[in-house]
């Protein structure tokens, strides 16, 4: 019956890939971490998206608070208010976070961050130490808030049976219109994005063809621009940055400031972005993002501007830094 395909998985291979932690604690490694350490690690690795107090920045997930809000019109679903199992918190931090640098959190750090998040949610005191030993003694506030799919009992009888075919309603009125919200992406002509063109536009013959985007030719032939190959390499390097920084036409501030015009700009001066005090002070003291300063910053962000809030370890390779700066110059002017 068996085909004899595949080979036995080795213990070291299973240990490397099977790191899932289950609600009963199965899969937890040895280790521990306290709230204070977790606070530090969180500030370093998590706070750029989730905020110093796990309050969530922009639309990034809020991790603390929201208790008692699940019946509200706008419920706040956090670890404290919604998550039923502590194992999920540890597992997700250890396996999938930080965003863009997954699987870099050590078991002790995962225990510490989890302890900090328990503290942020008012579940433990500030002297709490979480470990493999006491892990399953924690009961999450919403542990009883879930039940298995009951649609078969609660809905299917209601939604089955003979469907009405005629005179099913006395009067039908339009009660809501999407157009009043005006949140649909649109094409340049103002219609919903992707609206199909008229395949037989005899009556619309006067409508002009949209102008072809010929402008790119000019920018690519401009003299003294960055080396296209270097720019292309930089575009790849920039993927490491793109979760937080936007660049190019229409770029807006996100977790990090938008980077258009970064070369030659004074540090900490993008309008509307809330900088760390360290970065704002550095700009006020005269730091300008020259090619040289950008090189220094990107090779060691924490060392070059101490206590700034960019949670990025830096780029090891000078080639990568050359490339990403060329890309920024090309994409953001």
């Amino acid at each position: 019956e068996k085909l004899g395909l595949g080979r036995p998985a080795l213990p070291a291979e299973i240990a490397a890939w099977d790191v899932a932690v289950l609600p009963d604690g199965t899969g937890l490694p040895e280790g521990s971490g306290d709230v204070a350490t977790g606070d530090e690690v969180f500030a370093e690795k998590c706070a750029t998206c989730h905020g110093d107090f796990a309050e969530g920045i922009d639309n990034w997930p809020v991790l603390a608070g929201g208790e008692g809000s699940l019946k509200d019109r706008r419920p706040v679903k956090t670890i404290g208010s919604y998550w039923p199992h502590l194992s999920t918190v540890w597992d997700y931090i250890h396996r999938s976070m930080p965003f863009g640098a997954a699987q870099t959190v050590t078991p002790d750090e995962a225990y510490a961050i989890t302890a900090f998040l328990l503290y942020s949610n008012g579940i433990v005191e500030d002297d709490f130490v979480l470990s493999k030993e006491n892990f399953t003694s924690i009961t999450m506030p919403n542990a009883d808030g879930f039940y298995p799919d009951d649609r078969a009992e609660s809905e299917y009888a209601t939604f089955s049976g003979e469907a009405c075919m005629t005179d099913c309603a006395a009067e039908v009125k339009v009660t809501k219109r999407a157009v009043t919200l005006n949140v649909t992406p649109t094409d340049p002509d103002g219609r919903p994005a992707g609206t199909l063109p008229n395949p037989d536009p005899v009556v619309e013959a006067a409508v002009a063809e949209p102008a072809a985007p010929e402008t790119t030719a000019e920018t690519t032939t401009a003299a003294a621009g960055p080396d296209p190959a270097l720019v292309e390499a930089g575009a790849k390097v920039f993927k490491k940055c793109a979760a937080c920084h936007k660049v190019g036409e229409g770029a807006k501030n996100a977790t990090g400031p938008m980077l258009n015009g970064i070369l030659g700009r004074a540090a900490g001066t993008v309008e509307g972005f809330k900088y760390s005090k360290a970065m704002a002070d550095a700009g006020a003291a005269g730091l300008v993002w020259s090619d040289e300063n950008l090189h220094a910053y990107l090779s060691d962000p924490k060392g070059f501007v101490k206590r700034n809030k960019m949670s990025f370890a830096g780029l090891k390779s000078k080639d990568d830094i050359d490339a990403v700066i060329a890309y920024l110059e090309s994409a953001g002017g």
């Binding site: 699940l70 808030g145 879930f146 298995p148 649609r151």
Partner: peptide
């Protein structure tokens, strides 16, 4: 305020 889980289908 409670939630359905395992609503796969």
């Amino acid at each position: 305020g409670r939630a359905r889980k395992w609503t796969w289908v």
